[in-house]
Design a protein around this nucleic acid. Sequence first.
DNA 1: CGAGGTGTTGAACCGGTTCAACACCCGTGG
DNA 2: CCACGGGTGTTGAACCGGTTCAACACCTCG
Lengths: 242, 242
Amino acid sequence: MQGEHPLFSKLARGLDLSEAEASAIRAVPFQSVTFQADQAISREGDRPSKSCLVTEGVTCTSKVTAGGARQIMALHLADDMPDLHSLHLRHLDSDIWAITTCRLAYFSHQDLRQLCRDHVRVAEELWRITLVEGAIHREWMVNIGQRQATSRLAHLFCEVMLRSREIGLAEEDSCPFSVTQSDLSEMTGLSQVHVNRTLQTLREQHLISFGRGRLIIHDWDALVELGDFRPDYLHLDVSKAV
Amino acid sequence: MQGEHPLFSKLARGLDLSEAEASAIRAVPFQSVTFQADQAISREGDRPSKSCLVTEGVTCTSKVTAGGARQIMALHLADDMPDLHSLHLRHLDSDIWAITTCRLAYFSHQDLRQLCRDHVRVAEELWRITLVEGAIHREWMVNIGQRQATSRLAHLFCEVMLRSREIGLAEEDSCPFSVTQSDLSEMTGLSQVHVNRTLQTLREQHLISFGRGRLIIHDWDALVELGDFRPDYLHLDVSKAV
DNA sequence: CGAGGTGTTGAACCGGTTCAACACCCGTGG
DNA sequence: CCACGGGTGTTGAACCGGTTCAACACCTCG
């Protein structure tokens, strides 16, 4: 897939594309842009005329309260589309940040809309992608609202591992995960200090290793149990034949 | 609008419909069903072949953790479509419950898909509706993850008031809101006891009244301030001319 | 070698939880 | 008409998970 059109590799994942669809997708022009870690990619209130796809690195969606507290609402790994929703929403309702240095491919809304009009199945798949994002939001609400610190982190780690595996970035029991403890705290609604202590607990129980840009899960079953992790919400069950 | 086709009144809200679109929408068959308060409408894991629109009452989307704690992830008032996402997701990832007695109109997925294929703008509007749901999810994450109890409730009340106004259910400073304190606790990730105490605080400060199925906001500006409420995320700025 | 970001630790604190008892309200049936 | 019952709301008191603050350690990179 090296050098393949980024939107094509994304869509080919969930869809058995016809010749016509494939070539229409490959014909969508795109622009590659690199962002440094901790750079803002877009800001709340922006009215973008293009949407992006992450080809490398990690981005997140976040908001800051009046009190200055920050919540990260979503993580985007390779092949995720952080602001696809801007295709049909006038303005962005959250910021999008680069967590690591990352590379994005931009597609103009005009081109995407045309693609959708010409190829219904592609439209439906793009729609579906935004729906999965919503499903992940729902699970995160449960995580933040109802689970204890250890479970919250365990759950997050399980998700990251599964999503990394999905895009071919995971080895057997490990995957790249270059986020700080402070990032983790903003994803889970915990304080940075408590994340630190909770990580220690998880490490002491030989469940995970985390650090130097990598997550290693030593005991998947135990982590799943602890995190109350049921992956249905990721909607990975896409058999291409529908 | 009494007696009007429910999907039509919903879509006419955001879209200036052409004759062809309007009649196609009105042609979509639907089935009206009544649910009693606290009845399950659909369950996690279901694979629905139809989606519903709330015509009366209040429903919610929720999940229960392994520990038995329940999180409500979304509220649906009249004209909301609680499981529109099931149109493109194989299975439901959460339960849908009737909070009050309510009336739903059901549309088969087959019909909705056909409608979308025949009328792109309708497809885009339905897609948009699911995207707004996602935007609300994101704001709720901020609410649950970062705000204190008083702000959380204040924020929720502001949202309910605005959404009620949008569908014409609000009087000047009040709207119907028949949920228990326990429901509020599950929406905000607080304990029922603490919701009770927080409500007392809000009442003492003459910000709201809440009870007997009604929410009254006595001081909108103060409540907005307290709740850190910025309504952009509701994406109500739909001028019909695009 | 120094600087700044990240991770770690301890101790005091507090927002919110939990448990358990009680009050209230409304609808039901006797 | 009242007695009853169940759901909802209210209260107090003990408790605890997580926060906050502040200091320090560590690592990496220039």
